[in-house]
Design a protein around this nucleic acid. Structure first.
Length: 571
DNA sequence: GCCGTTTTCGGCCCGACTGTTTTCAGTCG
């Protein structure tokens, strides 16, 4: 059983955590973290790179980590990790999940009090035992208890689909209540990561204290963690941590760059700055005491002789090198999208008629909209049989005679059955403008079976698009076991378009596979899977995913004008 | 542990806020 990049990355993240707790050299810890991150974002399998003897060509992977990768691939185990695990009880690592508890505190309470679980930590805090330790006091004890409560109530990360609208709402509230010059959500929200740890909002104002006062008195604020002149952190009623930073207007660009991250991207940038004899902070780019940039992000990147880098790329996955060589992709934008190819109507489980959806699409400036209702295999979604599908197609044809400025395409979202066959006759499918095939059942099949099942469906000439290819539901259900690499190869070979399902729960194909697919010449469609008019606006989440996957307009079929799109479907 | 058009050794990004402190360590991003 081959070991995946994600699995190898997990091993190195684990090593980093364990070394961190043991008080190892922090740079060594970071080296493992960095290796994990690099491996996670590779677009080809580490195993292949290993077989070709190119492991140490990967930046951040040296002799020692390369040997560990080799051991993992050859034996499926890593003795170094096993030794480390044996020296620290698993529960001690769990303590790091408590906000306010870092490696030093975790190790301290384990050594002095034998604490090795969150439950034991809670008990010790309640009994006032933590305050007896050096460096810890009653206040810390209280914060740890609060942290444990928060962890239990809300878990760790929030999907972008929740965090982004909420951040936008907070921005509106702050604008109404405080003297604000500029305001912008930063952090992982601005990078459009699929899940968000906390919400960062950057503000410029000449009266920072008033902004902070307005912020902490918002009704959604449940608890204030820290409040200063430049930085304030709160916990909201929903349990999301939210930070507001206020800076002077002439620092806005530097601060926005800094607070957008990612941490890895910033570290890399600062290293470049250092090599040039410069220093970057959230206040600007400095040569000695002289500030040479900071008002805009363009200025900051410009000071390092780099073009501005779109936030979605800022993960230190090669974007800085690409920028330096003038090879940044020209990322797809929402305005490039000419139509949505995956929408549902009252004919299955949607909430609106075909006409209502079509008019809404026209309103958005689209040239076309694809109707792709469910088929009979999906009983819960009122899936249609052959006869109903053809009736819907007739209705669409009539509608097209009546409507102007928008073309409705007759499609379907056909189920890929357990054995890889489709649940609708191919003669019927052939009469439609396009066909999306998706998995909606038997999610728990083993990897080989699931992969083969999906490939078999893509093999059918009548299938144009593979719907939500990995089936994940962010925060709710893992992707089904499927070999992304094989999926992409087969999509390219069979000319099947990979969907980037924009529904915020899905964002599927995930960004990393988008990028891997682009590398192999795959084509994509960004679709919302809308079940209502409102949901057509979710397209922005799909575009974000595509952008994080380095995709350009040319990679996306629904950026094509209608006639060219239809040519692709007919093929 | 990684890395090198100054280096194979000695660096490795930078700052805010808090709590427990008489000057700073820990955590966070």
């Amino acid at each position: 059983m081959p070991i995946s990049n994600a699995q190898i990355a997990q091993v190195f993240y684990r090593i980093a955590e364990l070394l961190d707790i043991k008080g190892e050299n922090p740079f060594r810890v970071r080296a493992y973290e960095k290796a994990a991150m690099v491996i996670e974002s590779l677009t080809e399998p580490v195993e292949k790179i290993y077989r070709e003897g190119r492991l140490t060509e990967i930046p951040g992977i040296g002799k020692s980590i390369a040997e560990k990768i080799a051991e993992l691939i050859e034996t499926g185990r890593l003795s170094y990790l096993e030794e480390l695990e044996a020296s620290i009880p698993a529960g001690v690592v769990e303590l790091l999940k408590i906000p306010e508890v870092g490696p030093k505190t975790a190790w301290l309470v384990y050594e002095k009090l034998g604490i090795k679980s969150i439950e034991e930590m809670e008990k010790a805090a309640r009994e006032g035992k933590l305050r007896q330790l050096p460096g810890l006091g009653p206040k810390t004890e209280e914060n740890i208890l609060k942290g444990i409560e928060r962890l239990r109530r809300f878990g760790e990360r929030v999907p972008l689909g929740i965090a982004l609208p909420f951040a936008r709402q907070v921005v509106e509230w702050l604008k109404e209540r405080a003297p604000i010059d500029k305001i912008e959500p930063a952090g992982s929200i601005r990078r459009r990561k699929e899940t968000i740890g906390d919400i960062d909002i950057l503000v410029t104002s000449t009266q920072p204290l008033e902004v902070m006062d307005a912020f902490v008195s918002l009704p959604v604020v449940r608890e204030v963690i820290a409040k200063g002149e430049t930085k304030t952190s709160v916990i909201t009623e929903m349990g999301i941590q939210m930070d507001v930073r206020v800076v002077e207007p002439d620092c806005f660009g530097a601060a926005l760059q800094y607070f957008t991250g990612s941490k890895e991207h910033n570290i890399h940038l600062r290293k470049i700055a250092q090599d040039m004899g410069l220093k970057i902070s959230e206040y600007g780019v400095f040569r000695g005491d002289e500030k040479i940039a900071g008002r805009t992000e363009e200025e900051v990147y410009g000071a390092l002789n780099l073009p501005w880098i779109p936030p979605e790329l800022r993960e230190d996955r090669g974007e800085i090198e690409a920028a330096a060589e003038g090879k940044l992709p020209k990322l797809v934008e929402i305005k490039d999208i000419r139509g949505d190819l995956h929408t549902h109507t009252k004919h299955s489980d949607g909430n609106f008629t075909i006409k209502e959806m079509a008019l809404a699409a026209k309103e958005m400036g689209y040239e076309y909209i694809g109707i792709a209702d469910h088929t009979k295999g999906l009983g819960v979604a009122a899936g249609q049989d052959e006869e109903e599908i053809l009736k819907e197609k007739e209705e669409i044809e009539k509608l097209n005679e009546e409507l102007e400025g928008i073309r409705v395409l007759a499609g379907v979202e056909v189920n890929i059955r357990m054995d890889g066959t489709l649940d609708i006759d191919e003669e019927v499918l052939e009469q439609l403008d396009f066909v999306i095939a998706s998995v909606h059942s038997a999610f728990k099949q083993p990897k080989e079976v699931m992969t083969e099942r999906i490939c078999k469906a893509m093999e059918r000439e009548v299938v144009d698009i593979l719907g939500h290819p990995t089936g994940r539901l962010i925060g709710k259900r893992d992707a089904y076991e499927v070999d992304g690499e094989i999926l992409i190869d087969e999509a390219v070979r069979t000319g099947t378009i990979l969907e980037i399902n924009a529904f915020p729960d899905r964002m599927d194909l995930p960004d990393i596979l988008c990028r891997a697919g682009k590398g192999k010449g795959a084509k994509f469609a960004i679709n919302t899977d809308a079940h209502s008019i409102d949901q057509l606006n979710l397209i922005e989440y799909g575009v974000s995913t595509a952008r994080r996957g380095w995709l350009e307009k040319e990679d996306i079929v629904n950026c094509l004008p209608l006639d060219e799109l239809l040519k692709i479907f007919r093929k």
